[in-house]
Design a protein around this nucleic acid. Sequence first.
DNA 1: CTCACAATAT
DNA 2: CATATTGTGA
Length: 262
Amino acid sequence: MRKVDAFKRELPHCMHMLKDAIERLQKERLPWKEKGKGQKSDSEGDGRAKMSIDINEKRNWMSSAQLWTTPVQSRGGAFVPFKKPSGVTIKEGKRAVSVDGLSLSPVPVAEVESIDLNVKNESRVFVRPQPQQPHQQQQQRKQRRCWSPELHKLFVDALQILGGAQTATPKQIRELMKVEGLTNDEVKSHLQKYRLHIRKLPSSSLSWYQQAQCGSVSNPTVASSSSPQDHNMHLRGSAKRVSEENEDDKSESHSWKFQKRV
DNA sequence: CTCACAATAT
DNA sequence: CATATTGTGA
């Protein structure tokens, strides 16, 4: 915990340096900026320049916008919507996130303009400077959907019910899964990936999804020392005979070829 | 830098 | 709906 103190000391320095750089840039920019137009910019122009730079700076670290992560529905737990960073980096400054309720809203917030003494202890305080320009692209990318193993299981089940990966359609799958908050596009994307994967290695269709970059990488439950006498090492090797999709396609090939779709 | 994955564009 | 492309995190 001493690191925190260290950061407290260092952060202001960084900010100062940054500010210095920014000011210098502004000065450099001034000469060629006021060409033509009347220079009433005094306050406004200056402020704008500063702000734009500020925003540019922000863009860098703004890339990580992981906020809400759980539209997840009823079913009791089993879902691990939150992904815990494996490394124990110095991310302690997370308590002030209580405000993220509004972060998702597209409000054109006025934005803070002066960093100056804004240096709180928080390493990240973002306010979402998104509505900067009229372009607005499409308000950034959507938050990545976390396909937890459970979710994937449902997906596969639905897939089988619908008769294999090739015959199933995203909409049907989604309806069969009955997962709240799951969109067609998400299913579609997952289906695409799934198809590609089973095309590549037809034999193992159940195990390929192990990576689970979301829910359970490394050690999510180490700190609590909840299960010392663990028993994870079973499974794997028992239900080997399941050729899944391949068989499905084959076994039902006689029918689905002519069916227009249900 | 490369790869896997999910989002988004055709 | 299917594929292709792009953006990102590991």
